[in-house]
Nucleic acid binder design. Structure first.
Lengths: 230, 230
DNA sequence: TAGATTGTTAATCGATTAACAATC
DNA sequence: TAGATTGTTAATCGATTAACAATC
């Protein structure tokens, strides 16, 4: 039987693509037309084979002896990630973190277009944050359907997280970017991506402990290491 | 030769510990005294063997037939992560995201104490956000040394990221929690933990694409799935 | 004792890295 | 042609999962 399914890419590779994309944008802006894996690898402190494998998932082919055509590579990555045409997103929970993300312009770089915010607090409904309007949560199903929005960003307090997620699912959103620390229950057909700051902080704490054990001397060593770098 | 080094724990395990901790706090608050891996696993949608392996890195030992003593387990995890005694952190870059994090009370749960913010913008210096004062960046070395702070949160614009990181390293901070999308260069002795929202968004985009392929029908199926859950 | 659960040892799985052939 | 680089196949490594012995 013929295999029709597109082979799925390893998630670690997918996660690394944005870093390549960022560097490639920089190279393009500097007028560079071709680039080799070796160069990318050196710039990003990773192995060149890994770079080659990662780029391969986008379907790009390079030229031996030359490398990859930069604009072509950019297009391949953006196309693979679906970042070539902008996708809209709603944000649910306009507290301090939610408001900050609503006003954050950094998502535009990845063609993620934060359209509007939703909340249940009457004091927040109707206001605008950097041009993004805040609607009542009841409006979510209607607007999701009408604007064909697929992605929702969840920034409510932990206690309200599951209820808000249920509302997002019921409204028809197909992906939830979860900034709460709650383990959400959602149907299989809905993608949940956890930001999970606690997990990162755990890793940081753990690595810091190890690092302090290995380099106990404080200022002296650090300073000399910093000097060596520059 | 005797191995004195404490065996290092797998990072994936370390990252999962906060999720267990969260659940355990909940169980304790509900008056529960013991809990089995099976129970934790069911609650968190993971395998029970993985839970057992993960918990083992903290050094905890359970009782066959019974499970683990909840308060003891909480103490073991917190102790392992260094979350039992509060650690202080500085935040560099009080823009919209930085200000939001400075005002965010969620870090307290992990005993991370955000002490103060730093910035180079005179308009921001001297102000306070939810009781956290904003200092001039020049004050960073002195305050870091005097308060023995080890952790710095980096929330400056991308263009200023490497310079700010260099300043943090020079000031004596030993860990940088990097919220920018820049690949930072830092001496080996300094731990850098990247938040990397772009990587998460890439994973989300990728999984969403696959999910839409698998469940193309929009509203109908989703609704029935949601109904099934409740 | 019987049986559920822990803890450990072995098998599997997937990703990373190394080796090498193909190519311009 | 020679040599740098791509792309692929094989080997290694680490984490997850399965199997099983130990224990209360």
């Amino acid at each position: 039987m013929r295999e029709v399914e597109p082979k799925i890419a390893p998630l670690p590779s997918v996660r690394r693509l944005p870093a390549y994309l960022r560097l490639l944008h920089e190279l393009r802006d500097r007028g560079r037309d071709v680039v080799s894996c070796t160069h990318i690898a050196a710039e990003l402190d990773v192995g060149s084979v890994q770079v080659r494998k990662d780029l391969a998932v986008t379907g790009i082919v390079g030229k031996p002896r030359i490398g990859y055509h930069v604009p072509e590579l950019i297009a391949a990555i953006e196309n693979f990630l679906g970042w070539n045409n902008a996708s809209d997103a709603f944000l649910v929970g306009v507290g301090s973190l939610g408001a900050a993300l609503l006003g954050y312009d950094g998502f535009a770089e990845y063609n993620l277009n934060l359209v509007a915010g939703f909340d249940i607090d009457p004091a927040r409904i109707g206001r605008s944050i950097r041009g993004k309007k805040v609607f009542a949560l009841e409006k979510l199903p209607d607007l999701t359907r009408r604007m064909r929005v697929l992605i929702g960003i969840l920034t409510v307090p932990d206690a309200a997280a599951q209820a808000a997620a249920d509302a997002m699912v019921a409204a028809g959103l197909r992906a939830i970017w979860n900034y709460t620390s709650v383990h959400l229950r959602a149907p299989e057909s809905v993608v949940v991506e956890d930001v999970n700051l606690a997990a990162m902080l755990a890793a940081l704490s753990n690595r810091l402990t190890g690092s302090l054990r290995q380099w106990p001397a404080q200022t002296a060593r650090i300073k000399s290491a910093a000097r060596r770098r520059s």
